[in-house]
């Protein structure tokens, strides 16, 4: 069935433009095979006779269900526990220290991990704080984690991982926070309950407005999928999601300086991160 159908150059261009408007994600020509394969799979799954029929359904379906399924199919969700761990060290040794020093009133400190993918990052942050931030005895921490892909959010809530995901974790932490579940590792229930998983499209202003008052945002290796304008728009939304003095951590190959001038570059011993100025309004 799949072989009989084709995605023409014009179809690809139309789809790319539509998907970009909806999500901010821009597929270069080099991603053509990746996009075509997933489109053809979804056309099969929905018994669509042609790209045109499928595309019409995606655009005009009242529930938006197929668009969400397509978004789930088009997003890449590959990560593992303690990826780019140096930023977690920066979190406990530098960023949180600066924030608590400036924060007069006792309140919960809020961390946002986006995209959540299957949960390795937000749970990894939680473990790192429990293990390495002694002030956790004095401060409450709230962790929110978000993704555009609803299927991966469900997976994150389940907290069940393959060996590949946990291979960077020291055995002591694996024993302390996970239990074996067949070939998988199931994360501790208390940790699962400590993270609030939400669905967010970072290109959607209304979605972003619901996520606010954060002290630290981890947004690693997401903006690389966006074009310049969407990247800038998202960075500006993050600015308003942060409290004054809040920090944003990007992936090692990303630089906020090339995206927006709203943030200050902070060079800590462990990592370079970006800060909303304390005096910002």
């Amino acid at each position: 069935m799949t072989q009989a159908r084709m995605i023409s150059d014009e179809d690809f261009r139309k789809f790319r433009e539509f998907f970009y408007r909806k999500t901010g994600m821009l597929f270069e020509d080099s991603k053509r095979y990746f996009v075509d394969k997933r489109l053809l799979e979804r056309m099969d799954a929905t018994d669509s006779e042609s790209f045109r029929a499928y595309f019409t359904m995606v655009r005009f379906q009242a529930s938006g269900e197929e668009l969400q399924t397509l978004i789930n199919a088009m997003t890449v969700n590959e990560t593992y526990f303690f990826r780019e761990e140096y930023q977690f060290r920066c979190l406990v040794d530098s960023m949180l220290e600066e924030i608590v020093t400036h924060t007069r009133q006792q309140r919960a400190l809020r961390i946002w991990s986006v995209p959540s993918s299957s949960g390795e990052e937000p749970y990894g942050i939680a473990i790192y704080l429990l293990e390495h931030w002694p002030r956790l005895d004095d401060w409450d921490i709230e962790i929110v984690s978000s993704d555009i892909d609803t299927e991966i959010l469900n997976q994150a809530r389940r907290g069940r991982y393959t060996h590949r995901s946990i291979q960077n974790l020291p055995p002591s932490l694996l024993a302390k926070y996970f239990r074996r579940d067949g070939d998988h590792y199931l994360i501790d229930q208390e940790l699962r309950e400590a993270v609030d998983f939400t669905r967010v499209n970072v290109s959607d202003a209304a979605d972003m407005r619901r996520h606010r008052h954060f002290d630290i945002i981890f947004c690693r290796n997401l903006l690389i999928y966006f074009d310049d304008l969407s990247r800038k728009q998202t960075a500006e939304s993050f600015y308003d999601a942060l409290n004054p003095g809040g920090f944003i951590c990007l992936g090692h190959s990303e630089s906020m300086s090339r995206i927006s001038s709203l943030f200050r570059v902070r060079k800590f011993p462990e990592a370079i991160v970006y800060q909303k100025p304390w005096e910002a309004r």
Binding site: L130, L136, I143, T198, R210
Partner: peptide, 18 residues
């Protein structure tokens, strides 16, 4: 003090939503 589950994320009603 510890890790604390945040209140569910909901539409905000303050300042910019007035």
């Amino acid at each position: 003090m510890a890790l604390k589950k945040p209140a569910p994320t909901a539409p905000s009603s303050d300042d910019e939503r007035r």
